[in-house]
């Protein structure tokens, strides 16, 4: 299996090519929509939708997610954009021979531990994406492209915490 993928998979693009394409896509998004790219806004809407499905009364009463339920909760630009991200990544992975179903993590870490850490990391990122009013895409990348003070404040904090936590977590990836 690995011998096959070694010969069939195409290498990743040079970072200038990937970054250049991402920058042009971001520019086009600004010119078409008036705003940049995002991601976490979809997950907030999905959470509101799921909460409404399970416990509609408490979802509607919630001060933060409740207002999302006043309009079409999932039918929003950001939902279609995140579906587009998945389709784009799928097409790229399939056409380059890089699609592989599995769990990726450090080779010395048991798979169950990898999944527990993925869950904990996801909880932190989900929480952080709400208190920051966006994530690496919406505030960092798109905010950075507009030269927003908030975009660079976010990026400095993101990189600082990433380096600090990796001092303790690097064995997860070895």
């Amino acid at each position: 299996m690995s011998a096959l993928s070694r010969t069939q998979a195409r290498p990743y693009w040079h970072p200038l090519a990937a970054g250049g394409m991402l920058g042009l896509a971001l520019l086009a998004t600004f010119l078409f929509t008036g705003h940049g790219l995002g991601s976490s806004g979809f997950f907030a809407r999905f959470t509101a939708w799921l909460w409404d499905l399970i416990a509609p009364a408490s979802a509607a009463a919630n001060a933060y997610l409740g207002p999302y339920l006043n309009g079409p909760v999932l039918n929003s630009w950001i939902t279609w954009q995140v579906i587009g991200v998945m389709l784009g990544a799928l097409v790229s992975a399939l056409s380059s021979g890089r699609f592989r179903l599995g769990v990726e993590g450090g080779s010395s870490l048991p798979r169950s531990s990898r999944l527990v850490w993925a869950l904990i990391g996801g909880i932190l990122v989900g929480f952080g994406s709400r208190i920051a009013r966006g994530c690496t895409s919406g505030v960092g990348l798109s905010g950075g492209a507009t030269l927003a003070v908030g975009g660079f404040l976010f990026l400095i904090c993101f990189f600082a915490a990433g380096f600090a936590v990796t001092a303790f977590s690097r064995r997860l990836w070895q």
């Binding site: 990391g121 932190l124 929480f127």
Partner: peptide, 25 residues
């Protein structure tokens, strides 16, 4: 808000391996 969120996302990225957009990819 922006600082704490950036810190939480950086920390979660370091142990979970993704941010929201890259997890979709």
């Amino acid at each position: 808000g922006t600082s704490l969120g950036g810190l939480a996302i950086g920390a979660g990225f370091a142990i979970g391996g993704y941010c929201p957009g890259t997890s979709a990819a």
